[in-house]
Design a protein around this nucleic acid. Sequence first.
DNA 1: CGCAGTTTGTTTATGGGAGACACAAAGCCA
DNA 2: TGGCTTTGTGTCTCCCATAAACAAACTGCG
Lengths: 402, 402
Amino acid sequence: MTHTRTRLERGRNALGPALELVHTGRAPTRAVLTTALGVTRATAGAVASELQTLGLITVDSRPGGATGSHGRPSHRLAIDPGGPVALAAQVHADGFRAALVGLGGHLHATTPACTTVAADPKEILGQVVAAGADLLRETGRHCVGAGLAVPSAVAEPEGTALNPLHLAWPAGAPVRDLFNDCLAEAGVDAPGYCGNDVNLAALAEHRHGAGQGAAHLLCVATGHRGVGGALVLDGRLHSGSAGLALEVGHLTVDPAGRPCHCGSRGCLDVETDPLALLEAAGRTPGPEGSLLDQTRELLRTEYATDPAVRGAAHAVIDRLGLGLAGLVNILNPDRIILGGLHRWLLEADPDRLRGLIEAGSLWGRSGTVPLAACTLDYNSLVGAAELAWQPVLDDPLAALPA
Amino acid sequence: MTHTRTRLERGRNALGPALELVHTGRAPTRAVLTTALGVTRATAGAVASELQTLGLITVDSRPGGATGSHGRPSHRLAIDPGGPVALAAQVHADGFRAALVGLGGHLHATTPACTTVAADPKEILGQVVAAGADLLRETGRHCVGAGLAVPSAVAEPEGTALNPLHLAWPAGAPVRDLFNDCLAEAGVDAPGYCGNDVNLAALAEHRHGAGQGAAHLLCVATGHRGVGGALVLDGRLHSGSAGLALEVGHLTVDPAGRPCHCGSRGCLDVETDPLALLEAAGRTPGPEGSLLDQTRELLRTEYATDPAVRGAAHAVIDRLGLGLAGLVNILNPDRIILGGLHRWLLEADPDRLRGLIEAGSLWGRSGTVPLAACTLDYNSLVGAAELAWQPVLDDPLAALPA
DNA sequence: CGCAGTTTGTTTATGGGAGACACAAAGCCA
DNA sequence: TGGCTTTGTGTCTCCCATAAACAAACTGCG
């Protein structure tokens, strides 16, 4: 059961990589943990039991069922469902939401979607943090940290929101500091981190969703308004030297297109977001439901029957394909995942989009560009939690006092 | 002088990082090596003397001159000028060149520029390798490996040249295999590596030139024809999942511009290369000298006096600025360096180019984008040598048999 | 049922590499 | 010349990981 004393008390070397392997589902058993870490069985055993005593994972020595192969069955490794959690928060154009997320990207609790919006960031952040703190109180969980997803580029290392256009916040709002203030006021004793929502969604998808195993993952998504991008390189989010990478919204995809608030015309931001599709289809935005939901319904119910809808979808797909081809030429990712409306467009006509990317990129002409849909629910929330989990993944012993 | 025996014979842990620090000029003395590695003085001393016995660096315990500060003077560390070399080779639209490059990016010998061109890659590679082998014979140096720079994207892991348009080679030519064949035939017993010339130039500039210290370095350059780009992230070349990243030549910078061989119009490739500047200035390419040299002369002698030349330069600068702003929005580099004609354009009017980038990028609007010129001579050759040196930098003991 | 074969977990002995520490060396400055 | 500062060197020790041997648990077969 337990190991010798001398082993249990020691350091911090392979612990982080081992926890990350379990966290991302790449080490379901102790045997594969051994080979994935490239260490001996003895070391892997010590590391696993150390993580177990930290309360982070469970080591199940009685699999019970048949293993399907020869030899002694390996111990099952899993995230401890009773372990600590991270507080995740998201604010967007239509409201906010909070959640508790454990290791492995497991959602333990979520608040219902709240539709309050306010021009004062402190006000909204106070509400979402209070909602998260309530969840913590109800569940009695230990909280390792808190993460916040915002629909804006977040400058590093300042932690300021540079272009929160769709929140009507002041540009340059110090979201990270405000978030930490709200955490302190709500009695949550944990560090707070902030990031762009699409960046965090990409991170979550890379670790737990459609991006698993990709070395260079590109994610492009449109939610309520505007278009965001993200790049995960070798497992780490590439947010640029100042946190401003992958601001893909202003790639030009139609030189004669709509004017954009950036001063140019035909930007991805205004040519491929939900409003663009509705307008191209000759529809006016309805009063209820978000624009994203309206486009989803439109594609689901009328894409097959209404030529105008189909034509509009194709036009938007064509512009999206142009933008993605440009990104592929610059980044050469080995997987592309699409979220929001872009996901529905991909699913409406995958071949059209794929063909455009392959025709428009050097790489596409020489092979197949793997294109997939985001699959995770609440991926921005899960990604926000990843920010809070990162110190634990980097060094579990240092990050957990116990 | 020498250390205790037990220390000299051991492993391979801090050796690589230490050699890289000396190689890139960031560890001029043993004291700063100690702090840069974050280890104790004892460890740094053992590592330095190990590298010395390997014949890679010199450790000078007698500085002689005044140190300018208190305390015992630290031992000087330098690349051993008598150490091994890498064979570097470059082929381009107008010919080829070979060189021997030591650690630290030191050029030990170069062949004169040769203007032979041929549609058969094997023929040219045989000639350039033979020239390099002659240099090796003349100098009697030990060769750790060979690197080749080509003006084409090089697909990894195949090692094939995907778009050697300006060499009139067949697309998909297996350059790395051909290069290794030529090395073997020339009696050079060393592994051969290949890369894109601009990528390798960026790598060289990052380690020894204008890119030193940059965490996210973007390099854009135009040589004889076309435009290339490169990105160095955290000290490693980012060449994408298949070696095809930073194919920036086909960013659209003028929707109504010249037709491009890629099928689109107004690509960076055809709007900002030397030919584009000459045409915009109303000049016809002269018979002698490369197009690059002609544009350099034009800018040097007539930019200040001829309004047509100035207007043409400004037009090209404007398009380059548009392309760079797009790249900055995607990559958010903390330094941009320009080579070839782009360098001369930057030096002709730095404020104009800088202003365009800052106006056109989210990051630029919030701060200063560091923009600089490439400074290294033969940076593609030095970068090609870096490929060959990389195994030594990663693990000196494993890479050097002695 | 028992045994060979296979794979995995556990224990013990061993060793390499880096840190802590004390001391020596080599320059400044008064 | 003697204090002060910084750096190089030797010794001891500890920590982490490995190797090797053994034990455990399952499959499949006769």
